[in-house]
Design a binder for these strands. Structure first.
Lengths: 237, 237
DNA sequence: AATAACTTGCACATCACTGTGCAAGTTATT
DNA sequence: AATAACTTGCACAGTGATGTGCAAGTTATT
């Protein structure tokens, strides 16, 4: 008796699920309060279909946070520079590429309902940052007028602001994010400029990954183009 | 014929109105989504009574923004230091005292619905900041690796973060806010420490106002103490 | 003491959103 | 071509919030 092997998910369904995640990331980055309908529509699906992929809003948010945090944590573990200034700069530079994800993580992290979950998911990243800062304080390369905990928070906020609240299309956007973070860590602006001049690789085009990570929003319209109640183009079925 | 002069508002009503504004400021600083009911209850009034003082949610928010902005703008115009570094430091120091108002303004300013209104209300403050930054760039006392507009945004974000996302009860909180802002403006942390040492008045206890400004939340419980549907103590009738 | 001002509680209409059930249609996969 | 997987649209129930009308009570002011 050939016990019918439960057929694996259809390809279009897999794509649509991924599309929802992208769309949700983009939509929530733009408006943390984005409704399920808005998200589904901007992914080119009906609201009803979304519930076929995610049990509820929380499940969707949880997965967004998890995958986002995974990226961040992976990036953090990839930064191995012993020089704290360089490490912090490189970390910021790499995170800058994940602007939308940073935005979303920040939005969700501010929400009481998911504070716990985000805290856990982002723990490795935060640990890494704290370790870098501590190291810099120990060898005197970073500011010591603030305790590590507070400094970590300030640096995180500065990075978030520089990454998400500055026009990312500007050519100097990435460099700006890095300089901003270093400033918060205690360097003068001239020191940050000098540091980046000495380490041009930090702002490099970073063709040094493994697989090219499919980035945000391969779906249709950006986030919420006056979302009526009809699907945008892009749905596959 | 003694045309009955329309009796002036009762004193308790005036107090209650002020109480609502305080409560709303505190509540919204804690949670930008705070409901009308939550606000009213934390002011010791019923939801219904609130509508006797404010036409709708927007009217309430508008007044909060306006009074907050008025404080900020007044503060900004009071800062007359010619030295850009000192001016920026003093401005931050003074704004730090308005933590709850800064928090609220930031929250509301992020909301699309009130973006326009907040922008107009805060214009004078932003102009003042831009002027200070421009001055600093001209005489080389502030960073010149970022254009004024972007720098203004970054400084604003840094100040907001330092003022609202750091425990305000810490003794160094105020100093921290100032140092943070100066860091973002390009100074190294040692320079900020030196600057504050040279100008102890910046962190002074500021007994140098005119009338003591009635500050946030003379009402009852902080913001939302598991807001049921019954008034907290504090209502006057 | 009389009056107008104020507050309360309740009922009510409205809105936007969430989550689910189900029948009917479309499409990928075997 | 048959089948299971997927999507759609609609209906429906539930939640939580906003804003208003009104009668009854309480309180400041004259």
């Amino acid at each position: 008796m050939t016990t019918s092997a439960p057929r694996r998910p259809r390809q279009d369904a897999v794509d649509n699920r991924a599309g929802i995640l992208s769309a949700a990331t983009a939509a929530i980055a733009h408006d943390p309060q984005a409704s399920i309908n808005t998200i589904a529509r901007s992914a080119g699906l009906s609201r009803r279909a979304l519930y076929g992929h995610f049990a509820d809003r929380n499940a969707l948010l949880a997965e967004i946070i998890d995958t986002g945090a995974e990226r961040f944590n992976r990036i953090a573990s990839d930064v191995t520079d012993t020089d704290a200034q360089v490490a912090l700069a490189r970390l910021t530079s790499l995170l800058w590429q994940q602007a939308a994800h940073v935005q979303v993580a920040a939005s969700i992290a501010l929400d009481d309902a998911h504070l716990e979950a985000t805290g856990k998911a982002l723990a490795p990243l935060r640990h890494a940052v704290a370790a870098i800062l501590q190291r810099g304080q120990n060898d005197g390369t970073l500011r010591t007028d603030v305790d590590v905990t507070t400094l970590a928070r300030l640096v995180e906020e500065a990075a978030r602001a520089a990454i998400t609240r500055v026009d990312a299309t500007l050519p100097e956007a990435r460099s700006l994010a890095v300089r901003t973070t270093l400033s918060m860590a205690g360097l003068s602006w001239r020191e940050t400029v000098a540091l980046l001049a000495e380490h041009p690789d930090i702002l490099g085009d970073s063709a040094a990954g493994d697989a090219a990570p499919a980035d945000v929003a391969p779906a249709a319209g950006g986030a919420a183009p006056a979302a009526g109640d009809t699907p945008a183009a892009g749905a596959k079925r």
